[in-house]
Write a protein that binds this DNA or RNA. Structure first.
Length: 166
DNA sequence: GCCAACGTTGGC
DNA sequence: GCCAACGTTGGC
């Protein structure tokens, strides 16, 4: 019997996946103001995390998915609470959702900023090697959610692996 | 490119 | 509400 996701809440630490070909950690670093709304999420569970659970100041482990290799590149932070994701209303956007309206935007997204690159990149395969990370939601078979809560112990361990001290 | 494991949609 | 068909995610 696996622990349901909801048992990990409330969390103040999150792992957010992004495909680097679409939007990478380095894109965030280069972004004006070094912040970006996390738009394009079209999964209800991930949206609910952003809309209902994520608060300004929450820590974000920035994960590159579909990458060579996939893994955590650095730390970031929630800098603005969830607001409507207007890409859903834009017919020219690949994230357009015909069911979204101005009155009911349907999709919401937090804004992520304050990127801090890890001295050492943490690959997915490295995470699998470490006992203290074996219960990470990220490592669960079949877990595809793009936003996942992270426990404090997992977070501390990852910061050590990444040689990140602050 | 393959494909397992999910999530979503829509007919009934 | 069930569930088959389809679409997506993301590691490999």
């Amino acid at each position: 019997m696996q622990k349901p996701l909801i048992d990990y809440l409330p969390s103040r630490i999150w792992l957010m996946k992004s495909e680097p070909d679409v939007f990478s950690f380095f894109d965030l670093e280069k972004k004006m103001g070094q912040k970006e709304q996390w738009d394009g999420v079209r999964n209800y569970q991930a949206r609910n995390f952003m809309q209902k659970e994520m608060k300004v100041g929450d820590k974000v482990l920035f994960y590159h998915s579909n990458a060579n290799p996939s893994g955590i590149v650095g730390l970031a932070e929630v800098v603005e609470e969830a607001k409507p994701d207007f890409t859903a209303l834009d017919p020219n956007s690949e994230y357009f959702d015909p069911k979204a309206t101005k009155e009911n935007p349907r999709w919401y997204a937090v804004t992520v900023g304050k990127p801090q690159k890890f001295p050492k990149f943490i690959s997915l395969s490295e995470m699998r090697e470490h006992e203290p990370l074996q219960n990470m939601l990220l490592l669960r078979k079949g877990q595809r959610l793009s936003i996942l809560p992270v426990s404090l112990n997992e977070y501390s361990f990852i910061l050590q692996l990444a040689r990140f001290h602050k």
